[in-house]
Design a protein around this nucleic acid. Structure first.
Length: 591
RNA sequence: GUUCUUGUAGCUCAGUUGGAUAGAGCGUACGCCUCCGACGCGUAAGGCCGAGAGUUCGAUUCUCUCCAAGAACGCCA
């Protein structure tokens, strides 16, 4: 039905079209220009009545309101001009004014052959803050989303041509570290670092990551119950903040061990940071920040504390002032946050800073952002809060392990990996461990990026291990199968240069979906949510799989068909590879 | 208490600049390997889009009220 000869060439207007929708948009605009109507916001979309057409334009109904005319008449007038263009196979009006368009297969093929995936380099620099690991504490499941979403957004920005800087912003300072060091001093008072006359001589002490992970919760709980212990912890925190030589040297040791462990887990998730800066780095800018703020009129005293009021007229909720300095002279995390912004502006001058953090911190960031604007720290920088939903257990409450504790991220990843290893094709003998690891990460990442960024979602270990259906392993399997097909073609010296024709509804569907790539990427960028991409990956992959089962590509005797289909297969394979890479999912050779 | 978010199929979730017949995965029932990788493909059942009112040609989408769940709310991070 869609067959045609290869001599039926049509000429596309303008430059090579990266975005099919821009082309469609232009066609509609040209038609509208010939009429008396003007639509400021032309929206063309996939038709939800595919029996009537592939794409739809609903503007006639709005124009009818604007010009006080019958929408059907307006639509007919527009359609008359659209019909003159051979780009369309058919254009029609449906009551009360829907315009349905079907694209000429020739045009579809032309567009596909001219598609490119390159984006121009842009001037803007986007600074991304994600990860949020804490020193001396194991990463837990709550850290998963930040790493996954942040890393994917980072890669998306880069692909679209932006400069990016990523920073995990370690929790490496303040009371938590004071607690850990205090407890170490209780258990190992003999260490030279605790000696007031510490001479700076290096001492090898048996600190391990496991020890740190055990100590922190212990000390944290003890401080809640034992007032004396809390006082001591505050004292130790002060010694750390005063840069006491022995304490600082010990802190460096702790940092070293903990950071190594943190990086190991981020490596598994394929999350890479340009910077491993932390609160301790921002701390250095606090005095400078405070003296800068002292010269402004925005800091006031309230109950003995220094605060920056950030309330605005339009607020429905009372927004409390940002606490800058506590009544006892100490500083709080909002101060550190502000100092971090101060530091980033000073050193990197980003155009935007994106915070990929738990959405429950929304109020905190509202306060800090407003304070930053008020203090004119970020006159040219857009601060963006990209909060993500909370991960709950299958009971809908914050996720806990069976014994009520918090599950370590590394344990979660191991559980999924073991499951993948069990189910791995027994015919595969080499690199089983490595393959299972990649499949497991695809399962975890894909499931994590599937819901909308802002939705809370239920973390269900069963679901993460389920490797069928709308999952990472499904996408991987299909992608590897495409690669295998392409390899087989290569072995048989079958080459393919371009798409010549659309033969049936199956290859056509794939071509139509490929046209959406640019829109999908831009939508994901604007919404800062990856579910547009995971969703598109699934649609494209199933659409291809259907085509694959319906057409035996390599055995096709019509060379034009076979070559077109291989070209199409390669396109889908390239797009899948690209999108998986943006999601930071790695593809194993076999599975 | 105040404010915000959420409520869509048995379960887990998509879906709005207001559009035609509301989607997907899992699960359930039934099919498809002498053919490129069946972790695949197809078919079917399953919904008063939380309830009620309003705005209009037209509402899952916008407004209001109510019900239910969750979150945040000055010296913790």
């Amino acid at each position: 039905m869609y067959s045609f000869t290869i001599f039926d060439k049509i000429v596309l207007d303008g430059d090579i079209m990266k975005d099919f929708y821009k082309l469609l948009h232009e066609k509609i605009k040209n038609a509208l220009d010939k009429t008396e109507y003007c639509d400021e916001q032309i929206v063309v979309s996939e038709s939800n009545r595919r029996d009537l057409g592939e794409y739809q334009y609903n503007g006639a109904m709005n124009l009818a309101k604007k010009y006080h005319k019958n929408p059907n008449d307006i639509a007919k007038e527009i359609v008359d001009y659209l019909k003159e263009d051979s780009f369309f196979l058919s254009v029609s009006v449906a009551s009360p004014g829907f315009i349905n368009m079907t694209i000429s297969p020739v045009a579809l093929v032309e567009v596909l052959n001219s598609q490119t995936f390159n984006y121009e380099k842009k001037e803007e620099t986007i600074f991304l803050d994600y990860g949020g690991a804490n020193v001396a504490k194991s990463l837990h499941v709550g850290h998963l989303r930040s790493a996954n979403i942040g890393e994917a957004l980072n890669r998306l920005c880069k692909f679209l041509g932006y400069n990016t800087i990523s920073d995990t912003h370690l929790g490496d300072w303040g009371r938590p570290l004071g607690l850990v060091i205090l407890e170490l001093s209780k258990r190992y008072p003999e260490w030279s670092y605790f000696n007031p006359n510490y001479d700076g001589i290096y001492e090898d002490v048996p600190i391990t990551n496991n020890l740190l992970e055990e100590i922190y919760p212990y000390a944290s709980n003890k401080a809640k119950e034992d007032e004396k212990y809390l006082k001591e912890a505050q004292e130790m925190t002060k010694r750390l903040q005063n840069n006491e030589k022995g304490i600082i040297d010990l802190w460096y040791k702790i940092m070293d061990i903990s950071k190594t462990d943190i990086k190991k887990i981020y490596d598994r998730l394929n999350a890479n940071f340009d910077l491993y800066k932390g609160e301790s780095d921002a701390e250095k800018y606090v005095p400078e920040l405070l003296s800068y703020l002292d010269n402004l009129d925005i800091v006031i005293e309230s109950d003995g504390a220094k605060v920056i009021p950030v309330k605005e007229e339009s607020d429905k909720l009372e927004i409390p002032p940002m606490l800058l300095v506590k009544s006892d002279g100490g500083i709080l995390y909002s101060t550190t946050e502000l100092a971090t912004i101060y530091e980033r502006i000073k050193n990197y001058q980003p155009d935007e800073i994106w915070y990929i953090v738990d959405k429950r911190q929304s109020l905190h960031f509202t306060q800090v952002f407003r304070a930053s604007k008020k203090a004119n720290i970020t006159p040219n920088t857009n601060l963006v809060f990209a909060g993500f939903g909370t991960m709950n257990g299958s009971d809908g409450k914050p996720f806990k392990t069976r014994d009520g504790g918090v599950m370590r991220l590394t344990d979660l990843l191991d559980i999924v990996k073991d499951e993948c290893l069990k189910r791995l094709n027994p015919n595969i003998v080499d690199n089983r461990d490595e393959i299972a690891e990649k499949i497991a990460m695809s399962a975890v990442k894909y499931a994590d990026l599937l819901p909308n960024r802002e939705s809370d979602y239920i973390f269900d270990i069963e679901k993460f291990c389920d490797l069928e259906g709308k999952t990472g392993p499904f996408i991987l399997y299909s992608t590897i199968r495409m690669k295998s097909l392409l390899n087989k073609a290569k072995e048989n010296n079958i080459t393919y240069q371009k798409m010549y024709l659309i033969d049936n509804e199956y290859d056509k569907e794939v071509v139509l979906l490929l046209n959406n790539l640019d829109s999908v990427l831009n939508k994901a960028f604007n919404s800062k949510s990856l579910n547009d991409i995971t969703d598109y990956l699934y649609k494209l992959t199933t659409s291809y799989n259907r085509f694959y089962t319906e057409n035996i590509i390599l055995k096709e005797t019509n060379e034009l068909k076979r070559e077109s289909w291989l070209y199409l297969t390669n396109k889908v394979y390239e797009v899948n590879k690209l999108l998986l890479d943006i999601l930071a999912i790695q593809i194993p050779e076999k599975m």
